[in-house]
Amino acid sequence: MISTPTASGSPIVTLPAVAGVGLNPAHVAEILAGGTPVGFFEVLAENYMGAGGPPHRRLTAIRERFPLSVHGVGLSIGGAEPLDRDHLARLACLVARYQPAAVSEHLGWSSHDGRHLGEPLPLPYTEETLARVVERVDEVQTALGRPILLENPASYLRFAASTIPEVDFLAAVAERSGCGLLLDVANLDVSATNLGFDAAAAIDAFPMRHVGEIHLAGRFETVDEAGQPLFVAAHDGPVPESVWSLWERALARSGPIPTVIEWDAELPGWTIVAAEAARAERRLAALRRARGTADAAA
């Protein structure tokens, strides 16, 4: 294991500022058998909400060896309806059981009228939705007894009703609720392409002081019916160079931040995913050393 400097960004995660990987069950046997290690693992919360069985045995074994980040996808924090109390209780139970170093959820909604709609969906950014999201984040943090990180979504379209830029919306949620942010650089690059804004400028404007974790991932590139580029956050391949350079740009502002490689579809062997994490770790290690030198000089 790597020695574990604490994160430099948000004080509300205890993850080390190293590279981690989104855990896929297909890789667990190889990881536990001593295959190329990484700094930590992130798991999808909903995959570990059964009462018992092999998933929990796997997660327990991973948790004994690595720091853990729990990433929820189903709370529907941006939804118009009240939070699903049963689901929140399940998340609280998982967090209490595994005591992860970070807990995160999405800025989006996934439940409506008693139905679960799958992947988190976009919401318009207005004063009304901002107040609602702040209230929900507060409710989640109260139930968990700890702050969470909220992730920026991948956008494919925008709402005419929106009155607040996404980056301002996220900063306001963090400031009002006390939550941290999970900067998904891959989502930000996808959104910039899909909505036609400048990704570098968005990184420069992102409230890095609230960022406790970063996501990097691959994407599927296509075009819409007008021939305009349409990128899909498919997590189905290596991290594109444009995402790596935006990540560098973000870290230049913040210093090293725990960074997760997400690879969920078209899944390759563990060594390929671990190599992506190793690339991130080399850069983070250099930044940690530089910071250590600066700290020593100060």
Partner: peptide, 15 residues
């Protein structure tokens, strides 16, 4: 209604 594509373009494929 109320969704906008890139540069005010169509939204069907995006949706």
């Amino acid at each position: 209604e109320g969704l906008i594509g890139r540069d005010g373009g169509p939204v069907a494929r995006r949706f």
